[in-house]
């Protein structure tokens, strides 16, 4: 059989993921059980969803540090609305809108105010975390039982055809992201903007608009992740999502997307998120202390990125 070298290179992150999974399944037979695999996917779903939004931002050459804070803020709003008796559906819609708006504001600061994405989203990150603490008074908002709260709980804890609901949501997010990036004008503009901003402007494209949209999408994804976590825990934690931006960025980078923008794919991001998910899961199964886990995770990311370097 002839192996196409380019194809192999293209799918190297997938090959890495598979090879990695096979090794782990030999070390620990527990790994390759149906319930554990589902577990990995469900645990990965939060990071995957955030990373999907982050992919858009990074493809334009930007970065979004505010996702963790957006997650907490949207989660808190969602929880408080439900706790106050609002229909879960509307509460979720409002939480998602708030997240989108928060992202859009970062986008406006970046494009109109000409502020570096790193700084602008660092500001949003700080401000929104503070806003969450003010809003919750620093205490978790817990959802007591009730029909509405039960219904809301389905999002994080429910199963459909034996598969956890968050996995379906993740799947929908990725199909949508793929569709936007590969099949629509917006997707083309995202790649163009990351590849060469000046040329994109001269092509008659409103670069400012594209920037606002990608940060809004990132905010939307982060808010969605916030809703899922809140539902799963039946409570909104004011410190939820701290440090999640780094996991999301790691997933995007592991998936081969260039931090300087213009190159990469949503497919790579799924793989990147799964690599991190499998790693976390394996270290847990193998009973590695959580202190060491972080060191191992850092090392794996470093190795993967080194292997991915272009010659």
């Amino acid at each position: 059989m002839k192996i196409d070298k380019n194809k192999l290179l293209k799918y190297k992150s997938v090959i890495g993921l598979l090879a990695f999974s096979i090794i782990i399944s030999f070390v620990s037979p527990q790994f390759l059980t149906f319930s554990n695999i589902l577990n990995v996917f469900r645990q990965t779903s939060i990071n995957s969803i955030i990373a999907a939004g982050m992919t858009f931002v990074i493809l334009t050459g930007g970065i979004d540090l505010s996702v963790g804070s957006v997650l907490a803020f949207a989660g808190a709003i969602c929880a408080s609305l439900i706790a106050s008796g609002m229909n879960a559906f509307f509460a979720i819609a409002i939480a998602l809108m708030v997240g989108t708006l928060a992202g859009a504001i970062s986008g406006i600061i970046i494009s109109r105010g000409k502020v570096q994405p790193f700084i602008a989203t660092l500001v949003s990150m700080t401000v929104l975390r503070g806003a969450t603490l003010v809003f919750t008074d620093g205490r978790p908002i817990t959802l007591v039982s009730g029909e509405n709260a039960e219904r809301f709980s389905t999002i994080g804890n429910g199963y459909f055809l034996g598969i956890p609901v968050p996995i379906y949501i993740t799947l929908i997010v990725f199909v949508a992201a793929y569709y936007i990036l590969r099949q629509t004008r917006l997707g083309r503009y995202v790649y163009a903007l990351g590849g060469n901003e000046e040329a994109t402007k001269l092509s008659g494209i409103s670069v400012a608009k594209i920037k606002v949209i990608v940060y809004a999408l990132s905010g939307l994804c982060a808010a969605l992740a916030g809703v899922i976590i809140t539902s799963r825990l039946a409570s909104a934690q004011p410190n939820a999502g701290s440090g999640y931006e780094l996991d999301a960025i790691a997933a995007v980078v592991l998936g081969g997307t260039s931090l300087s923008g213009g190159m990469g794919s949503i497919f790579g991001t799924v793989t990147g998120a799964l690599i991190i998910g499998v790693l976390n899961n394996a270290l847990n199964i193998l009973n590695v202390s959580s202190y060491y886990q972080m060191i191992v995770k850092g090392a794996v990311i470093l190795i993967a990125v080194l292997l991915d370097r272009k010659k």
């Binding site: 590849g195 213009g262 190159m263």
Partner: peptide
């Protein structure tokens, strides 16, 4: 190269 084209995109794009 600087302002006309996006070098990493394809001819079509």
């Amino acid at each position: 190269k600087g302002q006309g084209l996006i070098l990493d995109l394809s001819v079509k794009e």
